[in-house]
């Protein structure tokens, strides 16, 4: 079959280095992956094309790149599945990381963040005489997150990292979860205190990009949500994020639906006067004038008692 590969290239040694697009037309086998195709280009058409790859079997995590705008492993992506009706496929380097050359990105920001979460076991007390024994049930739920191959696909497409490089990002936070949830680790409270700071778990937008692009089903966003829950459970419940979740849930229990006014007022805290005034000045008053406001007296849904009963049953509290 014919394919037109549209590759975003960058040569740092050019007189005026800037990204440009190059098209390669070639004849390939039906079973080719995107990586097979790129290798064919490098070997038979243009030896200057730079890319990173090794195992060709979704194990090494080297060949993450953007294919038609979304991060994926080139070796795990069948070409025929991503070709448009005209036989075109767009290939770019991963996002949120500086490009070294063509499809090769500098992974330093990625590794710096993984390192920042101290990804090693930190038990307390004297070293045991034998190995640490952990029951199967306590470890089995961690196998999903241990499957991470550090390819950087999630970091590439993270919508928060795109606007704020301070965010720890999905890969590092998933790695942090791997240790917080490990029964042999004793540093969880300290870890969680660090993770609830700016740039940590509460900065995630829950946009599902990382979940969608992860080639190994690690579910980084799900791990971030689990870290939020763990933080609240060790008493770290006064961050704006934790309060938002609490007030939201409370509103559904109270009336069956979301009371947006209550959420807006109670999340920053009623006595957080600067935050309240800032929102009132910028949006509140204008919205009120335009009639774009939730009702002041929030109505409960009919049959609210059934919703409260569900809360009671599932949460086990009145």
């Amino acid at each position: 079959m014919h394919v037109t590969l549209q590759v975003k290239r960058f040569n740092p040694e050019a007189p005026e280095p800037k990204p440009y697009q190059q098209e390669y037309f070639l004849e390939v086998e039906e079973h080719f992956t995107v990586l097979d195709t790129l290798i064919k280009v490098r070997e038979e058409v243009d030896e200057t094309l730079a890319l990173r790859c090794s195992c060709r079997a979704s194990i090494c995590g080297s060949c993450a790149m953007r294919i038609n705008g979304h991060a994926a492993l080139a070796c795990k992506t069948k070409l025929s599945g991503v070709m448009d009706p005209h036989g075109h496929v767009k290939v770019e380097p991963v996002g949120n990381m500086p490009v070294i050359k063509d499809l090769v990105a500098d992974m330093k920001p990625f590794w710096d963040k993984v390192r920042a979460v101290e990804p090693w076991l930190q038990p307390q007390g004297p070293e045991p005489e034998h190995e640490y024994i952990a029951p199967n049930e306590a470890m089995i739920h961690l196998t999903g997150v241990m499957a991470c191959i550090m390819c950087g696909a999630c970091v590439s497409d993270c919508t928060v990292l795109e606007v704020d490089s301070n965010f720890l990002g999905p890969a590092a936070l998933a790695k942090a979860y791997r240790f917080v949830a490990d029964p042999r680790d004793d540093a969880s409270p300290t870890r969680l205190r660090a993770l609830e700071q700016y740039g940590g778990v509460w900065d995630c937008t829950r946009c599902y990009e990382c979940v969608q692009v992860c080639p190994k089903g690690v579910d980084p966003m799900g791990r971030i949500m689990a870290l939020r829950d763990k933080a609240v459970h060790v008493g770290l419940d006064q961050t704006i994020g934790a309060r938002h979740t609490e007030v939201f849930t409370e509103s559904v229990r109270h009336s069956g639906t979301l009371d947006e006014l209550r959420l807006a007022i109670k999340t920053p805290g009623i006595f957080n006067i600067p935050a309240q005034l800032s929102q009132l000045r910028w949006v509140g008053l204008r919205a009120m004038l335009k009639g774009k406001m939730p009702p002041i007296f929030h109505k409960s849904i009919p049959g609210l008692r059934h919703v409260r009963r569900i809360f009671e049953k599932v949460e086990g509290q009145p």
């Binding site: 949500m225 979740t245 849930t249 509103s251 639906t257 849904i301």
Partner: peptide, 17 residues
């Protein structure tokens, strides 16, 4: 009589709920 879906926020606390 239907309640809020939870919007993914309530699910952070308790997915089963």
């Amino acid at each position: 009589s239907a309640s809020c879906t939870g919007a993914g926020v309530l699910q952070e606390k308790n997915r089963k709920l």
